[in-house]
């Protein structure tokens, strides 16, 4: 297991390096003059020249690449043009909100998706199965931003149950930062009022973000359960008179969970990508919204910073899933 873990960590380092190269390529694919793009349409020739030398754009491409990589290694992600602050500082400020949102959504997807998948496998072709099928097929096809708007219209405007957007009311004092998650931090400090408030703000974006994830977890879990429930050891268990509930919830679910776990890892990355939409709809102050507002302002460094961070988080999640896989199923450690 240790050598497996070490090999995985090496792969993580390699992939991160690759992503850094990829982002450099993206920065340089744009036809035309990047310095002019940064300077804006009304810049004079002198201003463009100044920017060119300031950003090191007048140097050979290989040298630019070396500088870029060196900067990344030392944690220098450049400076945002809009806020004139280092991108790294802003990423660290916005990341906790996104991570909290994605984790809550993930939890929601698992807690709802796995039991529903299980139920629809047990009652295959029954009414529950039909309802979950509609849910799982439409879940992937729903445009997150539109679904979010509908949820806002119904639950926030029509019923007035939940706040429309944001992370906390403007007047509320956020709890002292410990983990960066408002939910956990407010609980630690015993501030239940803030906790309730934070919870009411996160529910809608979390539901919207988790819906496609829930749908695919449901589908995979259902398909796996149906297959597992037909296998010999389940038949044997039934023959031994073990209760149906025990068979399904323990014996069958354990084996069906492995592919579900792979799907969870895959969907984690997908959700990180979708935060750019969901955070825009709900004005959620995370890295997704940060990337979008920077992209709209032609502020390029933050966008690259967010891409790197999202890639990094995704790789970490995938590695954790791989490790969990190997921990559960020792046969995979040799691969």
């Amino acid at each position: 297991m240790l050598s497996f873990t070490l090999r995985k960590l090496l792969t993580v380092a390699g992939t991160m390096l690759g992503i850094a190269v990829l982002t450099f390529v993206i920065t340089n694919i744009a036809p035309g003059d990047p310095a002019r793009l940064v300077a804006g349409p009304n810049a004079t020739e002198d201003m463009v020249e100044t920017i060119r030398s300031e950003y090191g754009l007048d140097r050979p491409i290989v040298e630019q690449f070396v500088i870029y990589m060196k900067d990344l290694m030392t944690g220098d992600f450049g400076t945002s043009i809009v806020s004139t602050r280092p991108v790294l500082d802003e990423l660290l400020r916005y990341a906790p909100a996104t991570i909290e949102l994605v984790l809550v959504a993930m939890l929601l997807g698992i807690v709802v998706g796995v039991p529903l998948g299980m139920l629809s496998a047990v009652y295959k072709d029954g009414p529950i199965d039909h309802v979950t099928r509609i849910l799982s097929i439409s879940g992937v096809a729903l445009p997150a931003f539109w679904f979010g708007i509908l949820m806002q219209l119904y639950f926030s405007v029509e019923l007035g149950w939940l706040p429309v957007s944001g992370r906390l009311p403007l007047v509320a004092r956020p709890p002292d930062m410990v983990t960066g998650s408002l939910l956990i931090d407010s609980l630690i400090s015993g501030n239940f009022k803030t906790f309730n408030s934070a919870l009411s703000y996160i529910i809608l974006p979390a539901i919207v973000l988790s819906f496609p994830c829930l749908a695919s977890i449901l589908r995979v879990n259902r398909a796996e359960m149906i297959e597992v429930l037909q296998s010999d050891y389940i038949v044997a268990a039934r023959a031994h008179g073990i209760s149906s509930r025990r068979i399904v919830a323990i014996y069958a679910l354990k084996n069906a969970l492995l592919p579900t776990l792979a799907m969870i890892g895959l969907r984690f990355g997908w959700m990180l990508g979708s935060t750019v939409l969901v955070e825009t709809v709900f004005d959620w102050p995370g890295i997704g919204l940060y990337a979008v507002s920077s992209a709209l302002a032609s502020d390029f460094k933050p966008v690259i910073g967010v891409t790197l961070l999202i890639g990094f988080l995704f790789i970490i999640a995938n590695t954790l899933v791989d490790l969990a896989y190997a921990w559960i199923d020792p046969r995979l450690r040799r691969a």
């Binding site: 990829l22 990180l272 990508g273 750019v276």
Partner: peptide, 25 residues
């Protein structure tokens, strides 16, 4: 496959956003 995996290592929408930001809207 290395290059392919590299592209798959970044969630598609985030990568596309970065590319559009570079190319212009």
């Amino acid at each position: 496959m290395r290059v392919t995996e590299l592209f798959l290592a970044v969630p598609g929408l985030a990568l596309a956003l970065a590319i559009v930001a570079s190319l212009g809207p």
